[in-house]
């Protein structure tokens, strides 16, 4: 990829499955996942990196899907809310979000879940303040956050 082009072939592992595609280089990762891969669980909320609705997992770390180009997924492993759901990896968090009513409109929820899962992987027993800080890059306009913090606490390992 030495020469500048406006379209590129990419190969990526998306939710465990290899995908080959031709992408316009200006297309964002989240637009590509939503429009070309049908993975509409990642949402577009601001397109300037503030709201976190577009969060996806790129090579094991949550990133903003609007601040990464699809072409940059070449050779990478991508996991979206759909993949995380199917693998059961975030099942505990999802159950806690459901039980605790930690969502209203649900638009922020996939991003919140993926970020919360990364927090718990790094820190299995976070305090409420640590949870709030970890989630502070994800906008929720409905819940006021309290219930989301409760749900993440409830999903901590060891808690019942």
């Amino acid at each position: 990829m030495k020469h500048p082009l406006t379209e590129r072939e990419i190969r990526a592992i998306v939710n465990g499955r290899e995908v080959r595609a031709r992408v316009p280089v200006r297309k964002s990762l989240v637009d590509w996942l939503r429009e070309d891969q049908g993975l509409t669980g990642s949402h577009v909320g601001c397109e300037h990196g503030v709201c976190g609705a577009c969060s996806v997992v790129l090579d094991g770390a949550v990133v903003r899907g609007c601040l990464t180009l699809a072409v940059q997924a070449d050779g990478a492993r991508i996991e979206t809310i759909e993949g995380a759901t199917e693998s059961g990896r975030i099942g505990r968090l999802q159950e806690a979000f459901y039980q605790r009513a930690a969502l209203q409109c649900g638009f922020c929820t996939p991003g919140m879940l993926l970020v919360a899962a990364e927090l718990l992987a790094r820190n299995p027993n976070p305090s409420r303040d640590e949870i709030r800080e970890a989630l502070s890059g994800n906008l929720c306009r409905c819940t006021g956050y309290h219930a989301i913090v409760d749900a993440v606490e409830a999903a901590k390992s060891g808690s019942r």
Partner: peptide, 13 residues
């Protein structure tokens, strides 16, 4: 709000 057209290069070195 979509990025304008540009060309993209990904040098390996």
């Amino acid at each position: 709000m979509k990025a304008p057209a540009f060309r993209y290069a990904r040098p390996e070195s």
